[in-house]
């Protein structure tokens, strides 16, 4: 396996993360949003974006002379699925400890937002 193949997955992750930050963007916009280490040639970023679009993860729309790429899956969906599945496999004690650890690391504004969401979820269940 070549080195370029082994970093392909990493670059794909970075491109998705960049698109989640900007919402949608052209090749150049995504390239600018990438960390300096991953800001390769324009063609490399374009190839990765096209590949992710072919795989069904990005929507590609022509706008003007170029294409605009938009993620088909939100970052929240992407993260929550794996977190839920990871926690589902853990024991009840470990699950509570892990959630407490995550909550402990939140900022006060994030905590109050989370409280609102918890209240909403509780109300919906009633």
């Amino acid at each position: 396996m070549s080195d370029s193949q082994s970093i392909q997955g990493e670059l794909q992750s970075q491109v998705m993360a960049a698109l989640w930050r900007v919402g949608s963007g052209t090749v150049e916009q995504v390239r600018e949003e990438l960390p300096p280490r991953y800001q390769g040639a324009y063609n490399t970023v374009q190839t990765v974006l096209n590949r992710l679009a072919t795989r069904g993860l990005l929507e590609r729309k022509r706008e003007g002379r170029g294409f605009v790429y938009r993620p088909q899956v939100t970052e929240a969906e992407y993260l929550s699925g794996s977190i839920r599945r990871t926690l589902a496999g853990a024991s009840s004690g470990a699950r509570q400890a892990a959630l407490a650890s995550i909550i402990g690391g939140l900022r006060p504004d994030e905590l109050s937002e989370l409280e609102d969401l918890a209240r909403e979820a509780r109300d919906q269940r009633k």
Binding site: G9, Q12, R55, G56
Partner: peptide, 14 residues
Amino acid sequence: VSAGALVELDEAEL
């Protein structure tokens, strides 16, 4: 195939 797999795997692996 999960979005995680599509992001993490390179073309040949996928």
